[in-house]
Design a protein around this nucleic acid. Structure first.
Length: 119
DNA sequence: CCTGTGACGTCCC
DNA sequence: TGGGACGCCACAG
């Protein structure tokens, strides 16, 4: 009975609502272990159906004091992405340093060493 | 509805 | 190695 949309699984629209998408992004970020990092693009690729920008948007939407390890998500160049407002970037760097992640002289993280990819 | 913006990424020089 | 152009797309006003 294709007419009655009682089956949520049969409704791509409902199954991919923003809430659900953000939830999947956060679930993925939560699995990044301390001392490792992933990238916006990689998360987007794993979750599917969204772009790197949306992952960044999901991170920005997190409330202060969230338990999600948002600091472990950086950009594809291994840098901490700049924000328009606030000093979140400094906060992020401090958090990562606390996890023993090392930065090179240009403030970048070696993804070959710390990247948590294909997970 | 249209426009500007942004926690991105890839390509090109 | 670095920096600019573009593509991308949800969101706010």
């Amino acid at each position: 009975m294709p007419k009655t949309t009682s089956s949520v699984a049969n409704s791509p629209k409902a199954d991919r609502s923003l809430d659900s998408l953000y939830a999947r992004i956060y679930a993925r970020v939560r699995r990044i272990p301390a001392g490792r990092v992933s990238t916006y693009g990689h998360i987007a690729r794993l979750v599917g159906g969204c772009s790197a920008r949306q992952v960044g948007y999901a991170m920005a939407a997190l409330p202060e004091g969230s338990r999600i390890p948002w600091q472990r998500v950086i950009n594809a160049k291994g840098e901490i992405s700049c924000r328009k407002h606030g000093n979140g970037a400094d906060n992020q760097r401090a958090r990562l340093l606390a996890e023993k992640i090392q930065f090179d002289s240009k403030g970048r993280i070696d993804l070959r060493r710390y990247g948590w990819l294909s997970h």
